[in-house]
Design a protein around this nucleic acid. Sequence first.
DNA 1: AATGGGTTACGCGTTAAGCT
DNA 2: AGCTTAACGCGTAACCCATT
Length: 290
Amino acid sequence: MTKKFRDYKIKENNAQYITFFDSEYYPDYLEAALQVYKPVFEQFGELLEEAENSSNLLELIGKESNPIRTQLMRVFRKFVSPDTSVEMLKKKTKIPEIIRDFGDRFRELELVRERYNSRPFPDETLAAMFFEYANRGEKGYLLTEAFFNWFEEKFGDEYEILGPIKAGRDIILSEYLEGFSNKVPADFLIRNKNTKEPKVVGFARYDSDRGGSQEDDRIKGNRDNVTEMIKYSRDTNKTLKVLLLNDGPGLTLGSMWDDYSSLEDYGEENVRVVTLKMLEERVTKDWIEE
DNA sequence: AATGGGTTACGCGTTAAGCT
DNA sequence: AGCTTAACGCGTAACCCATT
């Protein structure tokens, strides 16, 4: 009997199967943060002097080009308009609309100047806040990247793996599976290199933190996907496997591990849940083909 | 009544691909 | 070339609920 995801948790030792990606320690990165954002703050200060009013300040920022424009927008949000989401501010063309809809809630320019000048220059606090966001999402990319590399190395001759290694559109399964009409987004798809026959549908996720709320969504989403795949396999008489690549310390939180274990049970031999450290043992040609 | 862990709900910024 | 979209994981306020 093959080892199951559940079996990696005996005696609560599952943490050893988790992959860690290094993060920086506080306060080591403060210097780097100041380096990055000092020019942004500097320019914001200049525009602040130049502007006639708060709306005009936004217009002036809109004339700048990226990447600095987006950074100036972030500062604008903080000092002038916490109402306006970054999604809005990212669109240059939306600026007149934003002024129309939110302009009356912008903080008065005089007050903004006063508050801005009350801060030390460069504002280390704000730099640190911004910096904290900078690496969001990166660990998820590292996870898929590591998997793609491993897979190419190990199975590159026999199989091909499709999907974005970093940012980019997911694989929409209906576009690759004959007779499958649901627009299910997957992270990768493994096919026989010669026949192009789909073999494995993959979903990847790195959980640094947070158990709680996300657990349910993810398990449920994954379960729905598994159900779909099983049905598809049965209908078409093909064996299509589902690989759930999950990793990160978040896996050890709450009921996450157990939930994934039961998901594996639910999918029987067609579903495997793995971390990077289980790849050699669990992602085998036998499993792909059986 | 206080404490504290867990849950719910939602907004968030950056990146690279994709589009116009 | 500039802009938009799709993808990623992160942070936390407010609430729930069991225990002390």
